[in-house]
Amino acid sequence: MPPHPTRLVNFIFSYCTDPASLEGLQWLSCYLTTGKHMSMYYAFGTVLLLLAITAPVALAFGFGGASAARSHFAPLRWFGKAYIAIVRGIPDIAFFLFFVIALDQGFEFIRHKIKCPDWQEPVRQGNDFVICTAAKLPLGNAPQWVHESYGFALAVLTFAIVFGAFAANVLFGAMRAVPHGQLETAEAYGMSRRQTFWRILVPQMWVYALPGLSNLWMVLIKATPLLFLLGVEDIVYWARELGGSKQPQFTDYPHPDWRMWYFLALLVFYLAFTKVSEVVLDRIMARLTHGQATAAGEAQRKAAA
């Protein structure tokens, strides 16, 4: 490997080549476009990616959970109800910390059973979790990006499981809010249980579910900083990293402890994000209630008349 060049950096602005000579706004513009700051801006992308993947997956989990809780097969119903109930009494952060390790060990254990069937020793030895090298996830010699993606995937799965429980709770309530007469009518028309569920119940439940789901979206946005606890290099990580005081001998841009300002920026970012979501969700709700037989729909009709 060739010796690592210390200052091989792509400058966005041409005047950034000699930071020591810069002043004021120019200094700031160079400081905010260093390679590490670029990594921080990518981390905002990570947060958005997490939201984009987690929201549909959690909705699917929630739908599964809510359907299970309505099942006529008792063990499945118990499973669904238990899944919904976990969110009620226990702090969600405990779940985040728990699932990340538990899922990791679960996957490794399954791979261990498949890949090393003639392994004799127990997996748990005192304080160690011992599996054969071939079953390690990701493999010890895997490149760095595999490790990072695996960590991110575990985080997404954890978020989806926890938020799936919340979504299941919302959807379960929405399914019960659909007027019972609708379901009875469907049965009177000779529809089977499955047909009633898919053709009558599911299309009608969304209006009732939307307030809960939009609330959940807000909650999901506000939960994204917890990625930090799951070991992903997210915006909280970078804010702590970049904000800490920097000595002149280690960096071209020395500065005192600025973590307060970095977290202020994150605070503003989240406030703006929440505000935008609120406006968009209100519009969607207004569109969906249009012509519906709900109180809000009635109010719209009266206002238009």
Binding site: I221, K222, A223, T224, P225, L226, F228, V236, A239, R240, G243, D257, R259, M260, F263, L264, L266, L267, Y270, L271, T274, K275
Partner: peptide
């Protein structure tokens, strides 16, 4: 109400801690 309900408590804690430090 908007500031405290619209931002994550986790970030509020971090911000407050570093604010108190300075």
């Amino acid at each position: 109400i908007f500031v405290f309900r619209g931002s994550p408590l986790f970030i509020q804690f971090f911000f407050a801690y570093f604010l108190f430090l300075s």
